[in-house]
Design a protein around this nucleic acid. Structure first.
Lengths: 358, 358
DNA sequence: CCCAATAATCCAATCGATTGGATTATTGGG
DNA sequence: CCCAATAATCCAATCGATTGGATTATTGGG
């Protein structure tokens, strides 16, 4: 008989094994409700500090919640209130220092306003961007901040989210779509300034590394370059413009072309990454910077101050842009309105040795 | 009478105004259910491709869902199934290139396995880390990947999440806590290798920029340095070890000290950031690298190949680490088990000019 | 001590999807 | 054509928190 007992005991133990690995049941308001014999609605109100609950009861409930280790189930709360207190951020790549600063700004503001942030990388892929937008909609984020990918030309994929009533704010790469707000820097003016700076430094034949022209941002940067060239009495040549995605390899490839062109004495790249690729190759080939060829970039990546010579570039208020973008979005979420608004921030020309011929 | 009609019309229009800004009601399975006179449970099963629904009905439901623009409400689904298909990632800073590569690896694996990723930055703050962990628990993420902050010494704040049954995997900065898995590189061995390389290159008095010694990772790196020094017949001096958070400014500050020490001929920094800060200052002061002082770092930041001379450093399999970490976590989520496992990856010494005296 | 006014608490429905079990419809062998 | 076996569909409860309205308890003036 003792053996039988032992057997039963072992059997029960064996059966219970898989259960030990299951997620423990979390404490809910109903547990508190039962423990105190107080209706769960009152518990809910107490936990939300409602004035409909007496101080005495509130304290009892809070104490019990603490004691049981209660943790509000946000999923249930969100479902009921139809809010998630979460904003989605779509970013081309977080590894670009510009974007990671913007994100820090966004997080800063969001946290102060009680919002969570979901960061998603599109890796400059349109397909990925569409998928992300879908996920964000499914997750019912309260708003979306987006910097579109270099491939994005159609914006229909944003429709479902807008129809749902979620606000969207474009940052860095603005685009005129429906009544969405946007925040960016004055790319045209910045570009004009850098180009003029190169000209004043003595450049006569300046090539331009342009980004994808389907993106307004890069179109504006190119236009700034074009106008500065023309307004300063130089001749604009389309053959001096190289379009690419501005990766480091693109810069290297363009540098090769430039060397074969022989008369080039200046480079203005739409970002630092490509500028640095070009500089590395030019230096490797014995071209003197800035004496033979002056170089300027855009973004003020940390790397631009480390390379030799230091790279002249444009510094953008990245952190601030993130803060403002988040503020604009949260404003719209709270007001449940969508009054279009386009903010444009000013930038700063950082002059280093790469551009100073004299 | 016509005026009255007009008045009524305007009144109705005015009343409806605020409604226009409200979020539109989304289509639910019940809308599909009503439209087709099919029970919502069948609709749900059809949308989940259950075998309990006939092909014909399934098609009808899918068509109607498409037609109405149905979008599954993930919140409701998650609440019911007690799963979120989301993993949380806590990272000190996304702007560090090492971490952004790890994240890319994590996202890659996660996406392939159907998981969403929430990225949260602790900015090396313990307080922030605790808050984030709380948010992740409240949001009931299915698992957490964490690289602890430089301030983290106590791990009690992880308890509630572990009690809840959520798995945690440490990456990059492992720590022996309960039965949590971890993945990291062989910091000790890497450190030993770099240090020995500096010695073989002719360095006799090598200082070490150490990270916070409360973090195992930095302890291991220091130990590798110490042992390499001793095993190669040099004298270890505690005064040659400078502890800091390894920011660029720290590197600059240490460089100042080094110059005043006069006999130093080598620097091994626990990260590239501080190494580069030091290099910049040393170069500025006219110290020749590597002839006067050889320098080596850790991480292989992009910047390390751009600075002159190129910085000798350790390349870690960052992207791979992210992939493996995510895989380990997802494995645990699926199996609902937590068998502790510590993976250690190997690294690669990248020799550039900053360390080659001869 | 009574009763109206106010405060505190409870009831019951709801958010949208999922799921075990019950019921109804269909199939096919005899 | 009948009926057992199987397929397809429906019923009803559930996940956990919230909320408008109903009910009960308390307060305080007379």
């Amino acid at each position: 008989m003792d053996y039988w007992d032992l057997f039963l005991y072992l059997l029960l133990w064996y059966i219970s094994l898989p259960l030990q690995n299951l997620k423990k049941q979390k404490i809910t308001i109903h547990d508190i409700s039962k423990a105190l014999k107080i209706d769960s609605s009152t518990v809910s109100r107490a936990l939300n500090d409602s004035s409909r609950v007496s101080l005495k009861t509130k304290q009892k409930i809070l104490d019990k919640a603490e004691e049981l280790g209660y943790q509000r189930n946000i999923l249930a709360s969100n479902l009921r209130t139809n809010k998630t207190n979460t904003i989605g951020v779509i970013v081309p790549r977080i590894s670009r220092s510009f974007f990671s600063s913007v994100i820090s700004g966004i997080e800063d503001t969001a946290q102060n306003s009680g919002y969570n942030v979901i960061i998603c990388q599109s890796f400059e892929s349109f397909e990925r961007e569409k998928k992300i937008m879908n996920t964000l909609l499914s997750n019912r984020v309260d708003g979306v901040l987006i910097s579109i990918s270099m491939q994005t030309t159609s914006f229909d994929y944003l429709k479902p989210y807008l129809d749902y009533g979620g606000p969207i704010v474009f940052y860095d790469r603005p685009c005129s779509f429906e009544n969405c707000s946007s925040i960016s820097v004055n790319d045209y003016k910045a570009s004009y300034t850098v180009t003029e700076h190169l000209i004043q430094s003595g450049c006569k034949n300046i090539v331009h590394f342009a980004g994808p022209q389907i993106i307004d941002l890069y179109k504006n940067r190119k236009q700034g370059y074009v106008d500065a060239i023309i307004n300063n009495g130089l001749e604009f040549k389309e053959s001096y413009c190289f379009e690419s995605k501005l990766a480091e390899e693109d810069g290297v490839a363009f540098a090769k072309k430039i060397i074969s062109m022989e008369n080039i004495d200046g480079v203005y790249s739409s970002n630092d990454t490509a500028a640095i690729g070009a500089m590395q190759y030019l230096k490797f080939m014995g071209v003197k910077i800035p004496e033979d060829i002056a170089v300027a970039g855009f973004n003020n990546d940390p790397i631009s101050s480390v390379i030799e010579p230091g790279l002249t570039t444009i510094n953008q208020p990245d952190f601030e842009m993130g803060k403002i973008a988040a503020n604009m979005l949260i404003e719209q979420i709270k007001n449940e309105t969508t009054n279009k608004e386009s903010k444009v921030l000013d930038v700063e020309l950082i002059i280093r040795n790469s551009s100073q011929k004299n």
